[in-house]
Amino acid sequence: MSMQLGLDGMPARLVRVTPSRLATWQDCRRRYRLTYLDRPAPPRGGPRAASTLGAVVHNALHAVFGERPARRSAARAALEVDRHWSSEGFRDDAQAAEYRERARTWVGDYVERHAVVDAPEPVGEVVGLERWLSAPVGAMVAEGRADRLDDRDGQVTVVDYKTGRRVPDAADAAGSPALALYVLAARRTLRRPCRRVELHHLPTGTIAAAEHDEASLAAHRERAEAAATALGAAADALEEDSRRAEELFPPRSGARCGACEVRRHCPEGRAAAPAEPAWSGLAP
C-alpha cells in the first residue's frame, strides 16, 4: 500500500489501479467484487475464443518485435502464431484452424508493413514491450502493462493491439482511459515526453491515433482518480463489514451480461441476457 500526506498531515492511501480494474469497476461493481475482492475467488466461466486469439497475437508480436529488424519477417511472425497457438474457447477444430490461419496472416502482414528492414510504415525504435508501468498520479498509483512503447523523434508513443470485431477510430484512441493512464505512467516512469496513443487493429490493418494535450490528460486523470477513490473506499468499507457487499457492490445488468465470466454468480445478469457462446466476439 502506498502513502502520501493528506491535508491533515496524516498519511493518506494511494489506491493502486490498473486500467482493467477501473474498467471493471465502472462497468459493474458486483463483477469488480467477484473478480478482485472476494477470497477465495469464485469460479469463473470458461475461456473465450476472442480472448484466446488476442493473447496469441499479442504473444507473437512480442516475440517478433523483441528481435532486431533484420531478423523480423512475415514467416517468423506466422511461426510465432503457431508456437503460441491455443484452441481454447473456439467452437470446434475447424473454427480454430480458420482463425489460426487468419492470425498468421494478420501478424505477418503487420510485421511486413511496420517492423522489417525498409518497412513501408516503420514504427520507430521500440523502447518497451509488455512494459510494466507504475507511477503515482495524484491520489492513485497508475499501473499496467503497455503492449508496446515506440520512440519516434524523441517522443514516446503508446501502442495497443486490438483483434476484436469492432474497428477502432481516432475517437476511441483519444477516449481510451487505459491509453491515457499509460501516457501518464510512462511520463513518470521513463521521464520522457509522451502524448501520442495508437490502437492497432490487426484484422483490418487500421491504426487509430490521437495526440493528447495537458487538458485531455487532466480530464482522464480526474475521472480515473474519482473512480480509484470510490473503489478504494468501497473495498475498505467491505473489509470492515462484509454484510454490506450488496449495498456497496450492486450489479449493473444489461446485454453485455451474456458474455460475463462471473454470470453464474449473478442472478440479475443471467436474467438480463442469455449466455453467449464462447466464440462470440471474434472478428468476422
Rank of each mutant, 00 (worst) to 15 (best):
S87G: 09
R100A: 01
T35M: 13
E101Q: 12
S51K: 12
D109W: 05
D93R: 12
F65H: 12
Y110C: 05
P47W: 10
R68N: 07
A50P: 00
D38L: 15
D38G: 04
D82M: 00
P42N: 06
Q26N: 15
V111N: 04
V57H: 00
P69F: 00
R91M: 09
A97S: 10
F65C: 11
Y32V: 02
P42C: 04
A75Y: 06
D27Y: 12
A96F: 05
D38A: 15
V56N: 00
G89E: 07
A23C: 06
C28V: 09
A119L: 10
E67W: 05
W106L: 09
Y32L: 08
P40S: 10
A63S: 14
R33W: 15
V117C: 12
W85F: 11
D92S: 04
R91H: 10
V57P: 00
L61T: 12
R104I: 08
R30Q: 15
D92E: 04
E80S: 00
L37H: 03
G46T: 01
E101I: 02
R29L: 13
H58Q: 06
E88M: 07
G54F: 02
A55C: 10
N59M: 13
Y32W: 12
L79Y: 03
E88T: 08
S73A: 02
R31I: 11
P43K: 05
R31T: 11
S87H: 07
A63D: 13
D38P: 03
G54W: 03
A94N: 05
Y99P: 03
A55V: 02
W106Q: 07
V116E: 10
A41K: 14
A60T: 02
A60K: 06
P40N: 09
G45Q: 11
D82T: 01
A49K: 13
E88Y: 05
G45E: 09
